[in-house]
Amino acid sequence: VCKIPGCTKRYTDPSSLRKHVKTVH
Rank of each mutant, 00 (worst) to 15 (best):
V1N: 08
V1Y: 07
V1K: 03
V1P: 00
V1M: 08
C2G: 05
C2R: 00
K3C: 09
K3N: 14
K3Q: 11
I4E: 12
I4Q: 09
I4V: 10
I4L: 06
I4W: 05
I4A: 02
I4C: 05
P5F: 08
P5E: 13
P5V: 09
G6A: 02
G6T: 04
G6W: 02
G6K: 01
C7E: 08
C7D: 05
C7V: 01
C7F: 00
C7W: 00
C7T: 03
T8R: 05
T8H: 07
T8C: 10
T8K: 07
T8I: 06
K9S: 12
K9W: 13
K9L: 09
K9Y: 13
K9I: 06
R10V: 14
R10P: 06
Y11K: 07
Y11V: 09
T12F: 03
T12L: 04
T12W: 00
T12R: 04
T12A: 08
T12H: 08
T12K: 14
T12V: 07
D13T: 02
D13C: 08
D13N: 09
P14T: 11
P14A: 12
P14R: 05
P14M: 10
S15T: 11
S15F: 05
S15A: 12
S15P: 07
S15H: 08
S15K: 08
S16G: 07
S16Q: 13
S16N: 11
S16M: 12
S16D: 14
S16V: 11
L17Q: 09
L17G: 05
L17V: 05
L17R: 01
L17Y: 07
R18Q: 15
R18H: 13
R18M: 15
R18K: 14
R18Y: 09
R18N: 12
R18F: 13
K19Q: 11
K19L: 12
K19S: 13
K19G: 13
K19D: 14
K19C: 14
K19A: 14
K19Y: 13
H20M: 03
H20Y: 00
H20R: 00
H20A: 02
H20K: 00
H20I: 00
H20T: 01
H20F: 00
V21M: 14
V21D: 10
V21L: 05
K22R: 12
K22G: 12
K22N: 14
T23Y: 03
T23W: 03
T23S: 11
T23N: 12
T23Q: 09
T23V: 07
V24R: 07
V24T: 12
V24A: 12
V24G: 10
H25R: 01
H25T: 04
H25I: 01
